[in-house]
Design a protein around this nucleic acid. Structure first.
Lengths: 340, 340
DNA sequence: ACAAAACAGTGAACCGGTTAACTTTTTGGT
DNA sequence: ACCAAAAAGTTAACCGGTTCACTGTTTTGT
């Protein structure tokens, strides 16, 4: 493999000049530039990323930190990963995948060996010790999600609240008043401090209060069978339910089929909307369900872009982006018909 | 951040001794070792991965190459990714995620900058130009999947044939003779050279010939609705079908519900087995389906382990591992009952 | 026509480790 | 005791780039 030294020799210039020519760090005369280019071509020269990193103290590697005790690491996560890796690649960066427990020591291990320029943090909690540690260490980072305290923090998050508000408005417009909500199981939805759950729950409760309806909050594991098993509980606690807002993508198909089995077909008897899922997964329900699709790709791209931009220009403003879900309508809601 | 130089000074030894102490590359007297350890502790020293990589010409980074024009990059892929990253992490390596088109130039870009010690290649085709290129370049690699020509190549693959043989045997034992098979759409299953498809198809055809049954090969896109849409075609071409082998996980729920809608409930009228899917996704079908679950985690771990072992000991034998699917039985098959 | 400024290019230190070759000290056999 | 061999350490070159301070040459303004 040819080195810069070889190129310099062949082009009849100094090492430094080659470096300047490559990075155009300093102006180089057109003729010289041409000679260097030719030399690089004939030698099939590729700059060595490691040497470059050592000398410049910038590795152009960013880490994607995600927890292994995943919940919601589902269909959307994969899209997120690939979109993030693509975006990084387009900008000349590399994305390292870093699974791990949550926790501050984990951060230390990732960062301390100097391999990484910055971090993308997934599955952020409202109070997240990893964020604290990253700040202490002075490592640039961008959140996917939001902490409670956001001053000076760069984040890209899904606009769950917006989707919930929109969904509830649609239900209400169709005359629904008895509207239940279904979360996944990790962290009691009553107390969870996982951002999307907490915010969605609050938005829901507030709206229910506003229209004077009794809220019905449920949760089950992230699986279709858990969804099926949950339905009797829902019908017992909320016998007059006419609409369900699902925040649990994997459970959705099971919920729908169990509703039908209990004589409450969707959408005739119960209207259903899903928030923050991937269409791939939810379309397994029969009938298919209208979804506020999680903008995973967008999230991945935006997160990575923001981080890299700020790496290259540290005094840039932190990002504060809320990305809307896409409403994918397949008519799984209908006017409320009170049960005979 | 403390450097080795600092440690050496504090411990009163030379740079080299510190290096030997850290990597135990050369014996160091116990007393000296202790002093070095202490110095490292008090300085909170972490070796710099980049400098180490430059000097030792080993980055301890491996790349996971996966195509973006995915098919089957589905529920199983995510598990695969995280298992691979975990395994790498446990062995002190880092996993870079590298999406891209297929193609040999893609390989060049990944490898040429010296950032990477080895490559894990996903979604391997029977004749894969990337494999050729990797060999030319002399880059260590491990396949997830298998090429046609395997001499000297390290691979870890799912034992699809085994699963298909087992599944067909179960069908036959229950008296089924009219057995259809459903692939996903990428690459006509009649001619595809994507390994799993090609091998599965061949195994199926061979077995059908053996029992003197007429084969029925179908395919549709990787979605539940495509599955639903496919059912009428299946029933038209194979009106007497009593068993279906599905190689298309996302389509499975749709196929099941459409079968029911056409008066052929599963498993009473049609027995169904799914090969190479993830339980998460297929369990969305109602009733749930018996699955030969794709051993994605195992695949990820084994692939990474093999690659790293061979990086550290280049004259190790290449891996040649076929990993069995796990049979997850939920009774979606029943004795054949010829249609009235 | 001449000093000042702008432009091209070079040399060498440096990033933070690894490792081969060499020196010094210790050990052991006779 | 004495010498050869083993053990423990050290020195310095090297990995392949980046970048700062500097030199020599050309351009510009007046």
């Amino acid at each position: 493999m040819a080195t810069m030294r070889d190129v310099a020799k062949l082009a009849g210039v100094s090492l430094a000049t080659v470096s300047f020519a490559i990075n155009n760090t300093k102006p180089v005369a057109p003729a010289t530039l041409e000679r260097v280019r030719e030399a690089m071509d004939t030698l099939d020269y590729r700059p060595n990323a490691i040497a470059r990193a050592l000398a410049s103290k910038r590795t152009r590697i960013i880490a994607l930190l995600f927890p292994m005790e995943d919940h919601s690491l589902s269909g959307t996560a994969l899209k997120f990963f690939t979109a993030a890796a693509e975006a990084a690649s387009e900008l000349g960066y590399n994305l390292i995948l870093w699974p791990g427990d949550n926790g501050a020591e984990h951060i230390d291990r990732v960062v301390s060996n100097g391999l990484i320029d910055g971090v993308i943090l997934m599955e952020v909690h409202l109070d997240d010790e990893r964020v604290v540690r990253l700040r202490e260490l002075g490592v640039p980072f961008t959140l996917i999600g939001r902490t409670r305290e956001l001053s000076g923090i760069s984040y890209v998050d899904v606009n769950f609240e917006g989707a919930v508000i929109d969904a509830l408005a649609r239900f209400e417009a169709l005359g629904h008043r008895s509207i239940g909500i279904v979360f996944d199981d990790d962290g009691d939805p009553g107390t969870s401090d996982y951002g999307p759950v907490a915010r969605t729950r609050d938005t829901y409760l507030e709206r229910m209060r506003a229209i004077g309806a009794t809220p019905g909050i449920f949760s089950c594991a992230e699986s279709s069978s858990a969804g099926r098993a949950l339905v009797p509980r829902i019908l017992a606690e909320m016998p007059d339910v006419t609409a369900l807002l699902l925040i649990n993508e994997h459970a959705s198909p099971g919920i729908v089929s169990a509703l039908a089995a209990h004589g409450r077909p969707v959408p005739e008897a119960v209207s259903v909307l899903v928030v923050g899922a991937s269409v791939d997964i939810v379309s397994a329900a029969d009938p298919e369900l209208t979804v506020y699709e999680s903008p995973s790709r967008e999230l991945g791209r935006r997160g990575v872009r923001d981080l890299i931009q700020r790496l290259e220009n540290p005094n840039l403003e932190p990002a504060a982006a809320l990305v809307d879900c896409r409403y994918v309508d397949v008519n799984s809601i209908a006017p409320a018909r009170p049960r005979a």
